[in-house]
């Protein structure tokens, strides 16, 4: 049974197409999107400059200087997408489970009291629910190294802030709507901040600047303020290869 029965290819500006799937975000849909991105990358489509996976969409950017018209590219994308839906391909590379240390101490968690009040949970219950899942990395985006994670416990869903903070410190761990994530840089942010990681999520000086790839899994591990202070932000992240079996059946 294909993950999505229907898709449409829409222009996204004058130099990109969105391939949109009519299906809810899921691990299976993300696998299809990543596999499709790999197939497009291997196809002889020289004009393609960027492939950007999202929950229900793959954006294909192209350079108009390498095309005289877009019909050929459009046809190729439709045909590759049809093939990807009918014959799911396996995806190259190992998937890993990455452990990310998070300190939930009140000095790093300005919005934890509000979340507790709203969810009627104690701080330690929030931490227990937040550290339990192996979150799925659907994609990276927003700012360098930001991970879009799937699998937040429904008890922790909460609205975004009415007035976004002008700047959240790098490493801030937040919850917004049905999503949880970490702000890699000091940026404006509308999520409720419940903790902070000392780990650098973006390492532009290193050959591998990102700690995770799409379809990897992430687990938050609670640490104390003392462990936070002693942590080397650029230490190698703790990674474990996931066997095919253990990647199934994780709650979304």
């Amino acid at each position: 049974m294909p993950v999505a029965k229907r898709f449409e290819v829409l222009p996204n500006g004058d130099a990109a197409f969105d391939i949109r799937f009519s299906a809810e975000p899921s691990e299976q849909l993300s696998e299809t999107i990543i596999a499709l991105a790999e197939a497009i990358e291997k196809a002889p489509l020289d004009a393609v400059t960027e492939l950007v996976p999202a929950y229900q969409c793959l954006t294909v950017c192209f350079d108009p200087l390498h095309l005289t018209e877009t019909t050929g590219l459009l046809d190729a994308l439709v045909s590759l997408t049809q093939t990807a839906l009918i014959h799911p391909r396996s995806i190259a590379g190992t998937r890993n489970l990455i452990r990310i240390p998070v300190c939930y101490d009140e000095k790093f968690a300005p919005d934890l009291p509000a979340l507790c009040a709203q969810s009627r949970l104690t701080a330690s219950e929030v931490v227990a629910l937040h550290t339990a899942p192996q979150y799925l990395v659907h994609m990276l985006g927003f700012t360098p190294g930001f991970l879009y994670l799937g699998g937040l416990d429904t008890a922790l869903h909460c609205p975004r802030k009415a007035r976004p903070a002008l700047s959240v410190p790098p490493g801030s761990v937040g919850i917004g709507g049905q999503q949880t994530g970490i702000y890699p840089q000091a940026t404006p942010g509308g999520w409720q901040i419940i903790g902070r990681t000392p780990m650098a999520l973006f390492r532009p000086d290193q050959a591998q600047p990102f700690i995770a790839r799409p379809l990897d899994r992430v687990k938050f591990v609670q640490i104390s303020t003392q462990e936070f202070a002693q942590f080397d932000p650029h230490s190698e992240p703790e990674k474990m290869p996931l066997s095919a079996l253990s990647t199934r059946g994780v709650q979304q």
């Binding site: 996204n12 969105d18 999202a54 229900q56 954006t59 950017c61």
Partner: peptide
């Protein structure tokens, strides 16, 4: 509400 890539100029 389908999130997708943002390019300069959007």
């Amino acid at each position: 509400q389908v999130s997708s890539a943002l390019c300069p100029g959007t």
